[in-house]
Amino acid sequence: MDWILAHLDDIGRLTARHVVLAGVPLVLGLVISLGLGWVAHRVRGLRGIALTGSGLLYTIPSLALFVLMPLVLGTSILSPINVIVAMTLYTVALLVRTVVDGLDSVPPAARQAATAIGYGPARRFVGVELPLAVPVIAAGLRVASVSNVSIVSVASLVGVSQLGDLLVDGFNRAIGGELLAGTLGCIVLALVFDALIRLGERLLTPWLHTGREASA
């Protein structure tokens, strides 16, 4: 506890970096996945490729990906960009399937009604399919956010600092308080992300929270 109180500044700084390194890829990954998922949903042939490809991507060890990034991107090995890009890839790996599943979950009657009354494909996606896919996508996003918060701590090993630094340093120097701070920090962060996503979902799906069961 003493260690934590003495290092609140450091913990705060590392937490902020952790938020950026886990959160920015979450947002970028979501946007990319929406695009990819839409294409995979619409084009039959691409669906299998997109799902298998994204599944394989997730099996690449994070450390390997962090080390690989500078070679691919031409960035310096210590650049946080490496981590952000790598984490975005992981997010996409998880979310493409989620988006496809979400779009599959849209009631066919709603989709057909949208087409029948004159929505073009793009407006139908934004106006009807996406809002109805929100519950499924949000569920996937919650998994991805927990995954991101935990995987990103590995980035300490390639010199990009965040809460993972506390774990590495605490372990090396056998400081219990530091280990505790790193672990708790990650858990609290994961819970906060989760709560934010749930709040967002709730705000985006008012029709599911009418306080009355469906009567039809």
């Binding site: 709603a110 009604a113 029948a116 009354i117 004159g118 929505y119 073009g120 009807v128 109805l132 029709w207």
Partner: peptide, 29 residues
């Protein structure tokens, strides 16, 4: 799409948009 906007279509079972209020559903077109 333009043709369809000029034709009223009633889908089986109503086919309403579950995420829109009733009046917003009606105002869709």
């Amino acid at each position: 799409a333009e043709l369809r906007r000029g034709i009223g279509y009633v889908i089986q079972h109503g086919g309403l948009f579950p995420h829109r209020t009733v009046e917003r559903n009606v105002a869709s077109v």
